[in-house]
Structure formats: C-alpha cells, structure tokens
C-alpha cells in the first residue's frame, strides 16, 4: 500500500430509513477542522435512495463535496450492501481518513469495512487531531471502562478509520450558501449475491417519551443513593423545574429504576449538557467518562468523600431527599 496515494477526509453520513442522523453533521464539524488543518478536501459519503435533498444539506454543514450512492438496496441499512458500496468507493477514491458514527449502525458497519480493506479502526474516539509533522490522525479513546486514555495511530494503512460517539463533537452552523449542486457526485453501484444473505423482515420503531439525552441542556441524574424508583420522582420534578430531563448511572438501570436508554456513562450515553446535577452518584470512573465534559456540574451527595465531587463545580453535601425537593421548590418559586 502506497499511503501517499490516499488523501482527503471522509465522513460517513448516517441515515436511517431516509432520515439523516445528527452524528454525521457532528462528524462534519470536526472533520472540517481536520481537513483545513492538513489542507485536504472534506467529502461526505451518503448511501441511500431518493435522498438528493439530504446530499445538499451535507454541503451546507461543511462538506466540500458529497458522494451520494443511490440504490433501492440502500434504503434500509444492511451490513453487506453498505459494506460493499463503501469498500468499492474506498478502492477507487482512496481517502486518507474516514470517520463513522459510533452508533449501533456505525459499530456494525465500521469494523466490517476496516476488516475488508485490512486497515485500522479506532472505536469510540473522544478526541481527534493530526500529528504536526506527518499529518497522521491521532485518535484518542478511553479504555478499561474509562480508567485509561489511549492515543492510537494508524500510520502504515489507509484510510485511517475512527468511530466517534454522538454528542462528542459540535456541528458547525448551517450555511446554505455553501450548497452547490455541482459538488454532488451522484453514483450507482453494483452488488454481489451476498447482499441477500440477510433479509429484513420487520423494522420496529419504539416510541420513547423521553428526550434525547445527548440533546438535553439540563440533566438531573441519579445514582444508587437515590434508593428507589419511587424516589426518582423527586429528580423528575427537579428536571422539570429546570426544563431538562433525567438520567441515571449504571446502578439505577441495573436496579430497574430507569429505562436502558437513560444510562449515562462508558457503557451508556456520553452527555455534555449545560448543567448536570448528579444526585446520589458516587462517581465511578465509568460514569464520569460519560458526563465530565458537562459545562457545569452540581453534585448532591451525603458522602463528602465521594469521587463525584472531584469533577463537580459545586458540591452540595447532604441528604438528597431534603436538598432535591428544596432546590425544586426554590426554582418553582423563582419561575412564578
């Protein structure tokens, strides 16, 4: 492999059943910075069907060009069809880097592409930068349940691939003036028989009445110290008074107090709200990995030595059953 033949930054623009996912835009935001830093072109790669308008949107969010592969078989995600379509693009276009969202879809697709090409993939990166002298991608990720951070490089293989979890990077402001139809390279592709090995019988969307945690500006989060599902109501009231939502540490999910998709931490969601109120959360490193980049952290805990205080901007030491309702009551009085 002559790595000098490979250049340009690619972002995989994830769509689910025709709906562009925000993660692709977040990746474009970071990739824009990387591409400018090494003076290379930023390409968004979109696979789908009847998605011409989405292709334009990707230009507005920072892509220099869009490769849009259209086919009926790309309407709904399947590992085989999407892997084939992307691998044939990589072979002909030779990108230097490719970023993929660390979503359920991206964590299925990314490793399959990397293994087919025989290149490296770094999962769940929380920071990306390029090395000054070489322009190689430096990919930083947590390991050991967030206990350890590692910077990983892939210097002899291309493309350098990374997945990034939703909520880690910021998208840039939409700029319609960037949209230029000539920058959209619309293509078709061919598939082998293997793309029919898996048949999609049914796709079920479960309506969830909770907001997307990664979008929330105020989060009130509970841990083991909350004590019961019943006690979580106090947290919900506080969240409501703040105009936010609730989440929990792994313990609260394991105890069945909260739904799975409300877990914050290494094995749950990564959140960066304006304000994160941690109630009865001791602050296991796995939890901290998912919330320590919040703008302002308030810890409410009766244990003055709990590790959560180490990341908090403000620690209220005391009984959450007294502090939380009082906090709520004062907010309500203020909002009246």
């Amino acid at each position: 492999m002559n790595i000098n033949e490979y250049n340009g930054v690619w972002v995989y623009a994830e769509q689910r059943d025709g709906e562009l996912q925000k993660i692709g835009l977040e990746l474009l935001g970071k990739a824009r910075e990387i591409a400018d830093g090494i003076n290379e072109e930023l390409t968004a790669v979109l696979l789908g069907n009847n998605m011409d308008d989405t292709a334009k949107e990707l230009l507005a969010y920072g892509a220099d060009k869009v490769i849009y592969v259209e086919d009926e078989k790309l309407t709904h995600f399947t590992t085989d069809a999407f892997t084939e379509a992307i691998c044939s693009l990589v072979e002909s276009e030779k990108p230097g880097m490719m970023l993929v969202g660390a979503t359920y879809l991206g964590r299925d697709l990314g490793p399959r592409i990397a293994a087919r090409i025989g290149t490296g993939l770094t999962a769940d990166c929380t920071a990306l930068a390029t090395e000054e002298e070489t322009g190689h991608l430096m990919m930083t990720r947590p390991a050991f349940g967030g206990n350890l951070m590692a910077t990983i490089m892939c210097t002899e293989h291309r493309p350098q691939m990374a997945t990034v979890r939703p909520g880690v990077f910021d998208m840039i402001a939409k700029d319609e003036s960037r949209v230029d139809a000539s920058k959209i390279d619309k293509r078709t592709t061919t598939f082998s028989d293997t793309v029919d090995r898996i048949k999609v019988i049914e796709v079920v969307k479960e309506l969830k009445d909770t907001v997307d945690l990664t979008e929330a500006e105020f989060i009130v989060s509970g841990g083991r110290g909350v004590g019961s599902a019943e006690n979580f109501k106090q947290l919900e009231e506080l969240a409501h008074a703040l105009g936010g939502t609730v989440s929990g540490s792994r313990a609260t999910i394991d105890n069945g107090w909260l739904a799975h998709d409300l877990q914050v931490g290494q094995t749950g969601k990564t959140v960066r709200p304006l304000v994160y109120v941690a109630c009865g959360i001791s602050g296991a490193i796995q939890h901290l990995a998912g919330m320590q980049d919040s703008d302002y952290i308030i810890a409410i805990n009766k244990d003055a030595d709990a590790p959560i205080h180490g990341v908090a901007d403000l620690s209220l030491v005391g009984d959450l059953n007294k502090l939380v309702p009082e906090f709520t009551a004062q907010l309500r009085a203020m909002n009246k």
Binding site: G120, P142, L148, M149, A150, T151, M153
Partner: peptide, 15 residues
C-alpha cells in the same frame, strides 16, 4: 494496523 502511541490516566479537573 493500529498502534498505541501513548496512554495516560485521566485527570479530574479538581473539586
């Protein structure tokens, strides 16, 4: 293809 360049333990930002 991937090599670990460096590792470190994360610093907390301080109370």
């Amino acid at each position: 293809p991937t090599k670990v360049k460096k590792t470190w333990t994360k610093e907390t930002k301080g109370s």
